[in-house]
């Protein structure tokens, strides 16, 4: 379970995240939806422990910057960033060793197969397209068998087959009890997988929608435009 309480992040005088609190329960897929600059990536970076902030963030009751928490979450950043000199396979091996994983070979092969990377494992990080880098980034984070997974704009640069596979993978993670936090500004990309949507606007959560409480399938879109001030 991911718990975020009274999260505030300032960049100089700019308040990027303004007193945000939310929980994501095990087996729940939560979408962080918002226009560009709403503060989504900042929240992800705070949860991943990459930024200083005020407030508290815990993962399965461990502070997010503790080693216990780090073992429990996986993070796919908005912009994939791989090591130039390491092959796809070496990236996966590096992750496995850094996280002290046991019996991961089968899982590694499955992931590479699913994302069409199995025949490219000898390719170097610098030889990969942005989409392929994103696939490797996803595979590495899922390989660690996370209890909480943070996917920041994960569909950017992916081909349609990979997007479909990613959604399938997210649903499987949900089945296994993983809490999923997924950010996007493309409403259509999350239509069939969400349990809960948090709409962000100007650093705040402007709306919290639970799927079981909705009656209208266009409710997310309508609420999004209503709170962000856009027009359909």
């Amino acid at each position: 379970m991911l718990e975020v309480k009274k999260l505030v992040k300032n960049y100089g005088k700019v308040q990027a995240v303004d007193d945000v609190s939310f929980n994501i329960f095990d087996g729940e897929i939560c979408i962080l939806l918002g226009p560009n600059g709403a503060g989504k990536t900042t929240i992800f970076k705070c949860i991943a422990g990459l930024l200083r902030y005020t407030g508290s963030i815990s993962i399965n009751n461990h502070p997010n910057k503790s080693n216990e928490a780090k073992r429990l979450f996986g993070y796919v950043p908005e912009t994939p960033s791989l090591y130039d000199a390491l092959t796809i396979d070496e990236h996966m091996e590096f992750f496995a060793k850094a996280y002290r994983l046991k019996d991961y070979q089968q899982e590694k092969s499955n992931l590479l197969e699913r994302f069409d990377l199995a025949d490219k494992t000898d390719k170097l990080g610098k030889e990969l397209s942005k989409g392929m880098q994103q696939k490797v980034s996803i595979c590495c984070s899922v390989l660690t068998r996370p209890s909480v997974i943070l996917l920041d704009e994960p569909v950017m640069g992916l081909d349609p087959k990979a997007i479909k596979e990613l959604k399938k993978l997210i649903l499987e993670l949900k089945e296994q009890g993983c809490a999923v936090l997924f950010s996007t500004h493309i409403i259509d990309s999350i239509k069939d997988i969400w349990d809960r949507v948090l709409i962000m606007h100007k650093g705040k959560i402007a709306s919290d929608i639970v799927r079981s409480d909705t009656t209208n399938e266009n409710e997310v879109e309508e609420r999004f435009f209503a709170v962000t001030g856009g027009t359909e």
Binding site: A48, L50, E68, K70, Y75, Y83
Partner: peptide, 8 residues
Amino acid sequence: KHYLYLIP
């Protein structure tokens, strides 16, 4: 790169 910080 973020990996360094994520490693427990």
